[in-house]
């Protein structure tokens, strides 16, 4: 399995699309700051991490992170499917279980861990530049971000399942994008028409709930009016987020594994 991982990493490092995706994910927060500054007429917006979180900017950028996860998951899991290179891993004598495990691990490492780090990286460099800020509690925000890793894992697993079953990175990515759109549309309809409060039903709503702020109240601090946001994390949030995310992740992996293990390869 380690050999397959090495081979996958070797290929991933030479895949231009992966570097473009990662570069985009790094650049988007700065681009967002610039746009915000342009809209406010202040030039480049000086964004503390607290404001970054409180202004929903992190939540907005998370959408782009999801697109990045779709691309990375698709390429790592099924990038070798279109050109049949994955067939040669089977013919080399590796068990299908090991091939599957290696690809899923590579997909998780690049698609979940790396994108998660890129998602929270702005918090780090904004803190270095401007300090934390006033609007939110840093420990609570960090805990929410860490919890958000689990729905990201679930989202990554879903897209890896799609790519694996489609046997093509392109098809998996396309289907991933379509599923995001449909999920967003259905959620919007359910929330608007039936006043349903969807949090844990999908990975995106779960992550969005965690990394967006709720319940702001205005207080006066040092002669200035500051909006303070409620970022408290309850025990329920922790247990349900982790439990539901891991359960769905396991389900997606099992479905993908059974399909990979039992089906003939073209």
């Amino acid at each position: 399995m380690i050999n397959i991982l090495k081979s996958l990493n070797f290929g991933a490092r030479r895949e231009k699309v992966i570097w473009i995706t990662l570069g985009s994910m790094l650049a988007i927060p700065f681009f967002a700051m610039y746009l915000m500054g342009m809209m406010n007429g202040d030039g480049l917006q000086k964004m503390t991490p607290s404001f970054y979180f409180a202004s929903q900017m992190m939540g907005v950028i998370f959408i782009f992170t999801c697109f990045g996860i779709i691309v990375l998951a698709g390429l790592l899991v099924a990038g070798d499917g279109g050109d049949k290179v994955i067939n040669y891993e089977i013919m080399a004598g590796h068990s299908r279980t090991k091939i599957f495990a290696a690809r899923m691990l590579a997909g998780f490492l690049w698609g979940s861990v790396l994108t998660f780090l890129l998602m929270i990286l702005p918090l780090g460099y904004f803190t270095l530049l401007y300090g934390w800020g006033l609007e939110t509690n840093p420990k609570e925000v960090l805990l929410r971000c860490l919890l958000a890793f689990f729905p990201i894992l679930r989202f990554c697993a879903f897209n890896m399942m799609l790519a694996s079953m489609m046997r093509s990175a392109g098809k998996g990515i396309a289907l991933g994008y379509v599923s995001v759109m449909i999920t967003a549309l259905v959620n919007s309809i359910l929330e608007d028409m039936f006043r349903l409060d969807l949090i844990y039903h999908t990975s995106m709503t779960n992550a969005a709930f965690l990394i967006t702020s709720q319940n702001a109240r205005n207080v006066v601090m040092n002669g200035k009016t500051v909006a303070l946001y409620d970022t408290a994390v309850t025990a329920d949030m922790v247990y349900v987020t982790i439990g539901v995310s891991l359960a769905f992740t396991a389900a997606y992996l099992i479905i993908a594994y059974v399909h990979f293990k039992k089906k003939d390869r073209d």
Binding site: K84, N87, Y88, M91
Partner: peptide
């Protein structure tokens, strides 16, 4: 299969 090698349909190539 670790003692064998195959070239079936499309050759191995990225």
């Amino acid at each position: 299969r670790t003692r064998m090698s195959f070239m079936i349909e499309t050759p191995y190539e990225k």
